[in-house]
Amino acid sequence: MNEGSKARTIGMVGVVMCLVGIALSVDMLRTFRSRVDRMQQKAQQVGELHRLRAQAAEMDGMLRAVEPYAGSSAGSLETLKDEALPGEAAEVRERERVTLTAGWTGRQADVQLKNVPIKGLMRFIRMAEEQRLPWRLRSCTIRAASDRRGTGDATLVMETIQRVN
């Protein structure tokens, strides 16, 4: 192959490559916007998943925080009542347990106190919350007695959790 035909062959291959390159470029420019849009949409979806993962991580954090108390359970509300309000009438009725997650169950109890000193009532609630695991006050209705100042009736809903193995 002489130099002339070599140059022609190289040139022709070059022209073909250029044409292929131009065709690829045109195709790239044609699809550029849609591909960028698609990637942006995917990135947004990944961002949304990260937000959901943060929520899941928060829940995992809560479970990790209560995990050390897996072997513990809140003390008896009757006993606490006897300590905080000795001699006062009370009715403690625990509701059916609810399955939560990761082996934990939820416990709720209705506590009815009649004509008890408000200070003693507050002591009872505080003592319940100091338990490990604590009884937390979920709701309360306190009605002051009209005849005896500083006393009243109380209806409390207390709740706690307990790990069931």
Binding site: E3, K6, A7, R8, G11, G14, G21, S25
Partner: peptide, 22 residues
């Protein structure tokens, strides 16, 4: 002839570059 070859090679390189970039 050298110019022709150089031109052809330049064309080939340009084509290859264009394809490679794409």
């Amino acid at each position: 002839r050298q110019y022709a070859v150089s031109g052809a090679v330049a064309c080939l390189v340009a084509g290859l570059l264009l394809c490679a970039v794409n």
